[in-house]
Amino acid sequence: MTETRDGKAASDMLAVDFCGMDFATPLVLLSGCVGFGEEYTRVAGFSNRDVGAVCLKGTTLEPRLGNPPHRVCETPMGMLNAIGLQNPGVRHVVEEILPGLDFSETRFIANVSGSTVEEYAEVTRIFDDSPIDAIEINISCPNVKEGGVAFGNDPDMSARVVEVCRAATRKPLITKLSPNQTDIAENARRCIEAGTDAFAVINTLMGMAIDIESRTPVIGNNQGGLSGPAIKPVALLKVHQVYQVCRGHGIPIIGQGGVASAEDALEFLIAGASAVGVGTALFYDPLVCPRINEGIRAYLQRHGLSEVGQLTGTLVLND
């Protein structure tokens, strides 16, 4: 194993302490991209050990069938999705799925959604009584009629959801913020007051694609969430803005949106993220994570840094 100048093993350079959780690397697989944690292990060479954490599919109190097809479509350097929170319900997740996960591989984070504040609290409470490592509150899903982004775009409602979830768990609480709002920094401030431990920035941007022959939206739900490289500049600015609020509170950020390479991940770290989410890029290259890890490690060595955390928020703004 190679060592850096201060003797730190190369594998440890990527380790991150995120809200007390030991992430092996700063990479986090994003909710909705990897099912309930086992799906990508179908791919030979893929390992959950290559990432610091895996966010499980958005989970509600009762099972949901989700939206009609088409649920996904390609757009310029991105894709739209409107899955509609298809999931088997929190009890099934806790009783049938979590026991099958290997918690020695990585940290597993639940993603909680609901159509009422009470539902968020109840789902969080049920996950609190489970081996899950942390809970992400999804107040930014653009693809459901109730809850989701309707809560996330209103700072009062966002804070209210965080407050009730905070009361329902002592596990690390990560609030996933929407880019579809006027002042993301103000929303972040309110969520910190309400007790969030961390943020995930950003969820997808709302968008549409149209079939010009049928003159109908391509996506069955008419509109969907835009992800992929197309949204990276938006995501970077949002991370930078939220970091200005978080830095004084020691609140870490998972920066996400269009990350497909080590260079992308480094940009997010420099902008203020402590960890970096990978989602849509997996669809193009299921083995992208070890390559991103390798690229980050090479960058750290080249810049004489001993650990990835030293990069967080090192952005130097132009005068």
Partner: peptide, 26 residues
């Protein structure tokens, strides 16, 4: 066939409605 994103079961983007012994499912 259906529009597909991950193709390995991760994203639930390519679902179809089916009947199962336990009722409708995607």
């Amino acid at each position: 066939e259906e529009f597909m994103a991950c193709a390995v079961g991760g994203c639930a983007g390519c679902t179809v409605a089916v009947r199962t012994p336990r009722g409708p499912a995607m």
